[in-house]
Design a protein around this nucleic acid. Sequence first.
DNA 1: TATGAATGAGTCTTCATTCAT
DNA 2: TATGAATGAAGACTCATTCAT
Lengths: 206, 206, 206, 206
Amino acid sequence: MEVKNQNTEQILLEVAESLFIEKGFAGTKTTEIARLAGVNHALLHYYFRTKENLFNCVFERIAAQMVGFISIAFEGDAPFFDKLQRAIEMHFDGLVTRINLPMFVFREVIRQKERKDYFLNQLFPVAKRVLARMHGDIKREVKKGTVRPVKAQNVLLNIAALNVFSFVAAEILFDTKDKQNAGALKVFLNDRKQNNVNTIINSLKL
Amino acid sequence: MEVKNQNTEQILLEVAESLFIEKGFAGTKTTEIARLAGVNHALLHYYFRTKENLFNCVFERIAAQMVGFISIAFEGDAPFFDKLQRAIEMHFDGLVTRINLPMFVFREVIRQKERKDYFLNQLFPVAKRVLARMHGDIKREVKKGTVRPVKAQNVLLNIAALNVFSFVAAEILFDTKDKQNAGALKVFLNDRKQNNVNTIINSLKL
Amino acid sequence: MEVKNQNTEQILLEVAESLFIEKGFAGTKTTEIARLAGVNHALLHYYFRTKENLFNCVFERIAAQMVGFISIAFEGDAPFFDKLQRAIEMHFDGLVTRINLPMFVFREVIRQKERKDYFLNQLFPVAKRVLARMHGDIKREVKKGTVRPVKAQNVLLNIAALNVFSFVAAEILFDTKDKQNAGALKVFLNDRKQNNVNTIINSLKL
Amino acid sequence: MEVKNQNTEQILLEVAESLFIEKGFAGTKTTEIARLAGVNHALLHYYFRTKENLFNCVFERIAAQMVGFISIAFEGDAPFFDKLQRAIEMHFDGLVTRINLPMFVFREVIRQKERKDYFLNQLFPVAKRVLARMHGDIKREVKKGTVRPVKAQNVLLNIAALNVFSFVAAEILFDTKDKQNAGALKVFLNDRKQNNVNTIINSLKL
DNA sequence: TATGAATGAGTCTTCATTCAT
DNA sequence: TATGAATGAAGACTCATTCAT
């Protein structure tokens, strides 16, 4: 009488997530998910009925993670540039273990209108809060004459762009799976983190 | 009297390109390619033998385009900031009709080591030339005290990041296929183009 | 309530064997195997993955049968000519239900070096034992002056040749599937059996 | 203006023959025939319309060859055993370059009733003549008390069996395409030829 | 829950054959 | 005659899904 633990479902979700991210929806086989999860193929369907449905579950998990993760980065109330630096760095560091999140969004979410809408609906309230806060900060700094007048939305997009793209570039320029490149990769990413902070801050400073 | 042949191969390549970009390798069916190209399914295999091979042909076309397109953007010898602005804008404008290129690279090229290597080998010489030129320009400006000391490589990555991400964001935030959004989309992109130029230039200026 | 499973695999193997023997590898369709076995086409692949693999399974079965069957015929220790007669007749009778074995070997095994080698490796030890025994017998008889000095290997080949060819000739000369020929066929084969015994024995006797 | 010689048809027939013999009907592709013949694939169909038809042409050539070849071997009127020896040896030697003929008959002719009938209709008159002659010779020798009373048909089948099987065995036991085995193969075949003559003659002598 | 077996609907690929030139 | 292009029919194989146990 095996004690197959009660979270077979969780294991399936995790394996599915990593495969969907790595290979996309069409490129992922339910048999492979089951095999890697160490469970019977039919069981996957017992839990999730269809591949499509499993994908949706995975998607919601990721959407939740992504939004939650973003929200963390821009809180607190230190001096503006300190806070900005910290936010950029936190975002960057968060991506180290979560680069698949934006990749997943690019690869799989964009196409399906419904998924996109769902994702945006999750994202909006969080983004709004961050934007509102940033908008207030910028306004204040502009008044003080320390920051150029810019839209908070653009600053946020700039941060996301520089940070995310740093990892994408790393993926293209290095064989990230080859452990031998670990050193060079680390140097590259550190350099980029520094650059991103400087680029954003210098572009704002007056 | 149909106008057969002549460029059936070209048509197949174009349809294949758009489908591979839109749906990825696994998600694209050769039957659909053939159907959209208006030719018999077997003919696709007559010309390209396998789906894999067809994909490689598409890939090479895209790699060539991508590299060629990048190289255009940073030549000439106007004053530094003028040139920089022009380069950023050219790159941005180039992406308008080619946003699928970077998406394709993210989605399909990254995974296969060989394809990545092939792509990088195409990219390197062009990138090197651009970098060399930019490096010289920056050095001169730094000496004049008009520009902060930065690595040309980082400037290039920053431009790419801001520009490409602008289109990715547009894709996520707007339903780009819905003609009704055309106006808002245009406004958004113009705003981003302006922002990208300003962000880069302001981050460099001393 | 169907009696499913249990030996679907066996049924597939048997159907496959008879079709591969009858039509050769290329001439046999997996769809037909499945149809005749009364199972879904995909199931064939579920059990054997590929046609090639199914063929190999069939081949090993046949190689095993063939070798086992040959080994039976030449044991015991009656007087030499009695034993010889019995061996020839046993071999002949064994072929009645197994004529497809040599046919299969001729048709499908010969070409593929690996299969041939596998088959020979199965065959050799058995053949060696029979040859050794026959060689001893002949040596003894030659000393007694009752048998011409001949190589045991040649005697064995002669037996195989006469017996197998009798069935091949029957196949060519008669429509073996037409039940109406059954009588004539039986007469022919009996005559050949008699002939083969006599031919071998008379060719040896001194 | 190429001078594609007028016997494209012949070349196709020869290539087709060797491929059909080597790989069987189903295993042979018309594209390969055309390729090896150095002609356009469509041209094959221009000359022979269908694969089936091409096969029939090849078949008739082979049937003709086979029959003609067999007829040669048993003519003349030297003393009986001399003639018999010569016939066996001629038949054996004839097989050296024609071993594919009996293989082809086994593999491809047996199955199709019509082909078999056609083949037998070709074979019968020739075989009849040889049998009649052999029958007369044997009758005479039996009367003289030099030969056992046997059916000419059985003698003929015995010869065919021993000779043909010698080559089949060679094919199985040696890698006949490997030139390194040429020596051993030759020794084997010479030994078999000798054996076949002796076996037949000794089995008949009184 | 869990599993082996079964199935239908595809998907890629091959191949004989035809057609326009 | 000769050829490149085109096509229909089929074949091997895959895969998500279901079912009986």
